[in-house]
């Protein structure tokens, strides 16, 4: 038998501008970090392969622009996502308070089949900064995550590569739960009755 094709997981990363979405993704995929800030225009894509519960999966990461002017990428863009990652900056209350909006935006646009159980993961990024700058406590973040149906929460640093691997491992694992095997042929289509009078005719070869 041919090698089994890998599962592909579509993961969307959302959050305010400048919280480090692209940096997290780059740290995870390319093991690189740049201090230079470059706004993502529209969207960016990275791919990484990993093993989850003995299964090789490919994660297709959809990095989006946080800037408001690039929002509203639309229904089609979010369609068929397996997991949504919400990122905020622990040193910015505003970026944390925006999480509600990002979550709603995703649920409205993607309209997943079972919104109650759709897997989200929250990442509080930039924990490498000095403690004095920290604006959102771990407790506050975890309370929010619990209130939204126990969303897994990670505190990360894209710069120092803290918790990035672990976070994405959890993202993949939760995304995989969405990926149920569907028995395509379970319900056999109705047989075609060719002797029936109402078969549609069509043009073409009359040979």
């Amino acid at each position: 038998m041919a090698t089994r094709k890998k599962v592909l997981l579509k993961v969307i990363i959302l959050g305010d501008s400048g919280v480090g979405k692209t940096s997290l993704m780059n740290q995870y995929v390319n093991k690189r970090f740049s201090n230079q800030y470059k706004a993502t225009i529209g969207a960016d894509f990275l791919t990484r392969e990993l093993v989850v519960d003995d299964r090789v999966v490919t994660m297709q990461l959809w990095d989006t622009a946080g800037q408001e002017r690039f929002q509203s990428l639309g229904v089609a863009f979010y369609r068929g996502a397996d997991c949504c990652v919400l990122v905020y900056d622990v040193n910015s209350s505003k970026s944390f308070e925006a999480l509600d909006g990002w979550r709603d935006e995703f649920l409205i646009q993607a309209s997943p089949h079972d919104p109650e159980n759709f897997p989200f993961v929250v990442l509080g990024n930039k924990i490498d900064m000095e403690d004095s700058k920290r604006m959102v406590s771990q407790k506050r973040a975890m309370t929010w995550c619990q209130s939204k149906g126990n969303i897994p929460y990670f505190e990360t640093s894209a710069k120092e590569a803290i918790n990035v691997e672990q976070a994405f491992q959890t993202i993949a694992k939760n995304a995989l739960q969405q990926e149920a095997e569907v028995e395509l042929y379970a319900d056999y289509p109705d047989p075609i009755k060719i002797d029936a009078e109402n078969q549609q005719g069509y043009g073409g070869c009359s040979c």
Binding site: I41, G42, Q71
Partner: peptide, 13 residues
């Protein structure tokens, strides 16, 4: 305008 910006941005990308 937001939508247009997003589109232009993505097209640019």
């Amino acid at each position: 305008s937001n939508l247009a910006d997003a589109r232009i941005g993505l097209k640019r990308l």
